[in-house]
Design a binder for these strands. Structure first.
Lengths: 216, 216
DNA sequence: AGCAACTTAGCGAGCGTTCAGTAAATCATC
DNA sequence: GATGATTTACTGAACGCTCGCTAAGTTGCT
């Protein structure tokens, strides 16, 4: 009877059960196929069958972790965009901040993205659908910016993938004790993403939405 | 006696022996830990000990593949930059073209980058050293461009990583039968990289080096 | 005869998974 | 408020398989 989440906050890594947390750490460290259920159990301090009491099998551990990770980042990204108003530049900035926050605050879950190859076809399908949602949000924002003249990239697809690859990359180099804070990294990447989009003017103080993003 | 490279061209994937080629394909498809030496042997059409006659062990297969991959991309990138003259914008464009060419022409080897986690510490050290070389080339180019005013990014480190993440990402989505040719993708990413660097003027026809890169 | 390039056969270890049993908590009943 | 039934959360032991790897033997070319 120890299989409760340690915290009930809204932090998706904090509210993992001990088993899921141990599985996450092992998967991040050694990869899905490089991890044995025995090492997960040992990390939790239980025997192997205890894992199978709470989860169907090893694959279900990975699927659940990835489901949670994707659900959180999709929700945060969509909410951030919705709260940012109608201006494409602001929406893009908000989404980038949300995604960078995910990469730095939930680095383990974010890094797990590299393990999606190990998903069974059914589980992979759900993952891809969630990932496509984020890609669609970004692509639509780019298109809207091109339509109103605030962005100028001629290659929406390449630009979308470039932004998301750049952001996903953060999960593989970010260190909590690095020189820049999460917020600094987020702001840098807002500007880098806007550069990729070919944003035409620095803060774009249009009459409808002045005083929003602030440039350093 | 079938363990010769199929072709002796300068294409690093074509000049792989059948065993290394099979190992590459399996590693790309299932990951290092998800691949067994038996499936590699079966793919070549030999028995398992034949693998061990030509290679020390499974780890040596991965190490050799990654060594070749990194040696080639480092060499091509350095040569491309050297041949591009002194102008940072031209050097950056040349390096991006070289790296994109690597990602699209040797997608398997490029994708193997994701398996570096499975390297033993010694082998990983050699890999990291090679990867750092590319990062240093890119960073130096950025710095030179900032010094002469042709680039303007305030964050050299983040910008370097962003460019390389963006380019590495190509290996995970590029398809030979996709809508854009390798050359088109390369030119798009040259412009995207220059945008990340904050390149100040489109083709920058300075008096010393006009008539070089051509904008679409 | 000798070497290169294999094959046959198998070793011990570790893999994911399951089954049967059990201590403790929870609940229903008197 | 003690008692028996049920449920929860596990443990011990082991199953069948696959893993990386190797010793010893075989084949065919020079």
């Amino acid at each position: 009877m120890a299989e409760q989440p340690i915290a009930a906050s809204s932090d998706p890594e904090a509210e993992l059960t001990p088993i899921l947390r141990a599985a996450l750490e092992e998967f991040v460290e050694h990869g899905y196929d490089g991890t044995s259920v025995r090492t997960i159990a040992a990390r939790v301090g239980v025997t192997v069958p205890a894992l199978y009491y709470h989860h169907e099998n090893k694959q279900a551990l990975l699927a659940e972790l990835l489901d949670r990770a994707m659900a959180v980042v999709v929700r945060h990204t969509a909410e951030a965009e919705a709260a940012a108003g109608p201006v494409p530049r602001d929406r893009m900035a908000a989404m980038v901040r949300a995604i960078v926050g995910h990469m730095t605050n939930h680095q383990g879950l974010a890094f797990l993205d590299a393990e999606t190859r190990a998903l069974t076809p059914d589980n992979r399908k759900r993952y891809v659908a969630q990932r496509d949602q984020i890609e669609d949000l970004m692509r639509s924002c780019l298109r809207d910016g091109l339509a109103d003249g605030s962005f100028s990239t001629p290659w929406v697809g390449d630009c979308t993938r470039a932004i998301l690859s750049m952001l996903q990359g953060i999960a593989s180099w970010y260190r909590e004790d690095g020189p820049d804070s999460r917020e600094e990294i987020a702001e840098h990447h807002v500007q880098l993403a806007l550069a990729l989009a070919g944003a035409v003017r620095p803060p774009a103080p249009t009459p409808t939405a002045a005083r929003r993003t602030r440039r350093r």
